[in-house]
Each structure stands twice: as structure tokens, then as C-alpha cells.
Amino acid sequence: MASRRFDLFLILPLAIFTLAFLILPLARLAVEAGSGPQGLAGFFAILTEARFRNSLIVTLALAIVTTVATLTVATIAAQTLAGRQFPGRGLLLSMLTFPLAFPGVVVGFMIILFGGRLGLVGSVSKSLFGTNVVFAYSLFGLFLGYLYFSVPRVLLTILAAAEKLDPALVEAARSLGASPFAIQRDVVLPALFPAMYTGGALCFATAMGAFGTAFTLATTIDVTPMLIYTEFTLSTNANMAAAISIALGLITWAVLAIARSRAMHDAKGA
């Protein structure tokens, strides 16, 4: 009996906090979204209104391309780092992972320093070819920003898996005459797959909700989180902002669910 009461005592703060600041507010958000002038149709505005739909398409494409690019470079880097000992390895690893703590706004600023009007690439290209190459405020700049904050997280996840991979398996495949491509396809990638899935899902969800980077770059490209912000603050349209947020959350969740079922299917097939 004392143990039951103790369990209750342990979970009570968590229960109160979650109820008051997560469950009730999310319910309130759903009510707000459904009580606009369009009623429940507001939920579908993200698909029916051209401005919202275009923003959703750009955001989805950006998130997918970011996820694929991040997984590719992170998997290559993780295999390069795993099982290799060399001086400065710890330092290199810190360099690759410390942007983890940067908020999106700082990442945006890094891209401005890299490819903005006074940026590094621009000044190098100016002295070499006489033209100032500026890409920070374009879709490409936004993509680089997303890559910047995604790589560290995904790399850590995949590196942990790559270090557990038995090098003898790769060695065996190689001595049997498998090409590097075949080794990747048949030995390495299947072993890294769970970590790649986890990392990719996190990367995709973060990219869908990212706001700070687009905010700092102040591009003309409206990613959906930017749209939520402008709807709420500039148009003071809380109903629409709430409806888009919920739609964005659900679409993110749905894409992840599809990816998960495909992943399960592939894993079974292999």
C-alpha cells in the first residue's frame, strides 16, 4: 500500500505538468483551429489555399532533400571515423558535433557569413573571378543551413552504430571479392539501417518544424513554420495559425509513419 502511494507521489509532478502544459494546450489549439470562419474546413486550408499549399510543397521538398543529403554525408563520415584511430580524432569529432547546440538563428548567421553579401565564398570568388557569389538568401542557402544543423545529430546516431559493426564482416566480404558498392549494399548499410532510420526521422521532423534559420536568412521563400508565425503575429489570425500548425504536425507524423512501415517492410524482405 505504501508502495502504491509512493508510485503516485513519483508520477504526480509529471502528470500535473503534462496535463496542464501539454495536453490541455494542444486540445485548446485544436479547438482554436476548428473555430475559425471556415470552421473545420480550416484544417484543410493548407491543401486548398494555393499560398499555403505551395509553402507546404517547398517545406516538404526541403525536408526530404535535407534528410537524404544528411544521411548520405553522415553515413560516409561515420564509416570513415569508425574504427580509425589517428591523432586529433577527438578534436575532429568535437568539430563535427558541436553545432548541435546552435539555435536555428545562429545557423542562419553562419550561412550568411559563408555565402552572404560579405560572405567567405563571395569574397573568394570576387578576388578570383571578379564576381561576388551570393547564395545565402536563396533556397540553396536555406538547404545549407538545414544541412548544417542536421549533420551533427545524425552523425552521432550513425557513428554509434558504425562503431558496433564488426570489421571482420567487411573483411570477409572483401576477401570473397565483393566490390565496395556490393559491400555497402549487402553488409554495411543493412547493419546501419536502424540508426539511419532513427537519425533520418529526427532530421526530417526537425527540418519540417525549423523556423530560426529561415527567420535569420529572411528569404522570400515561405517555409510553413514561417507562415504560421506571420499568420499569428502579422495577420493576427490565430485560427489559421493553429490549423496550419496542426496540419503540419499531422503531415510530419504521417510521412514518418509511411517511412516506418516501408522500413519494416524492407527489413522483412531482406
Binding site: 490541455l24 489549439l29 518544424g209 513554420p225 504560421i228 504536425g249
Partner: peptide
């Protein structure tokens, strides 16, 4: 998983 903006909006509305 939920976008930060959505959570903030939910808290402000509540």
C-alpha cells in the same frame, strides 16, 4: 516531434 511554434501557440492560446 511537434513543431516548437505549434507548442508555443498552444501555450499562448491557453
Amino acid at each position: 516531434a511537434v513543431p516548437g511554434l505549434a507548442l508555443a501557440l498552444a501555450l499562448i492560446l491557453s
